[in-house]
Amino acid sequence: MLAGIARLVARYALLAVAVVLLNFFIPRLLPGDPLAFGSGEGLDAATPLSAAAQTALRDYYALDQPLPRQLLAYLDGLRHGDLGWSIAQPAPVSGLILAHLPWTLALLLTSLAISATAGTAVGIVAGWLPGTFRDRALVTLAGLLAAIPEFLVAIALLLVFAVGLGWFPIFGGQTVFATPSENGGVLRRVLDIAWHLALPATTLTLVGFAGFALLARDVAAALRYEPWLTAARAKGLSEMAIAHRHALPNAALPLLTFFGLRLGAVLGGALVVERVYGVPGLGLLGFEATRARDYPLLQALFLLASLGVLAVNLVVDVLALRLESRSGTRGG
């Protein structure tokens, strides 16, 4: 068990190093000069930079030095939590990201929690009797939902519930220009934010639900014909007991693994959905950064997102290891 955890940690540490190196090399190995756009050539000049500003940026990121030197400077910056300065906004990248992170986290956590539990429950119930109407309805609906890109689901919900029915706001994460009297009270503010985040969270929950439900359904449908479940049935156990004591513990493992694999996609979905609803989270930040060619910001966004996903996957894998060793499929 401990050896297994140590192996996992080593594996993920290696992946993390790979991510950091990738993050360093992607901008440097791709063709082109990162500051070329700033010289104002062609239509590309989204953010014209003065010659002095360009030299300053070159110096700051050590772009004139040989690659190993640049790598050292980069790693040294990382060690101090220095992710560079934003090109488009006068602020350090780490500060910008920290300021926008809570919105994305709120969206991610609520939608993941709801979609994972509800999706798993519904999927298992449907998959327990494969081929029935209930099962086919779930597979058809969830299949469609999982196939359509998140931003279209977001647009559909926006059109119906915000534009059409007017139940929810169309844009933004909270009421802007709220007068001081309206702004009073923490509760009111929380409610206001919840009201604004309701549709984006629902979008992510729906899409996530489809994924989890389909997987749980497949897992349950596969388990159903396992010989050891037939044995349990032959012993005269009730279906309830079989589902709870025998099927669920075995279904937990693939579902857990799937949760980890799925995280990157859910995160990506959250970023895109934020753009549709104008939630001021990391997605909107990244979207604006692509407009302004704010490379340091995009780089930091990618680095943090990858490291975050890796960290969660490490936790998931350790949990899976525990589950496995407890159910005795893997000794140690």
């Binding site: 995160l267 990506g268 895109v272 990244g286 979207f287 692509t290 490379y295 990618f302």
Partner: peptide
């Protein structure tokens, strides 16, 4: 396999944003 795993684990939207902005959309 290591490369495959790494690509599977990376959150792709941030990666697309970075690479496409660098390459030029």
């Amino acid at each position: 396999l290591a490369a495959t795993d790494l690509l599977l684990a990376l959150p792709n939207i941030p990666l697309y944003l970075l690479v496409l902005t660098l390459l030029g959309p």
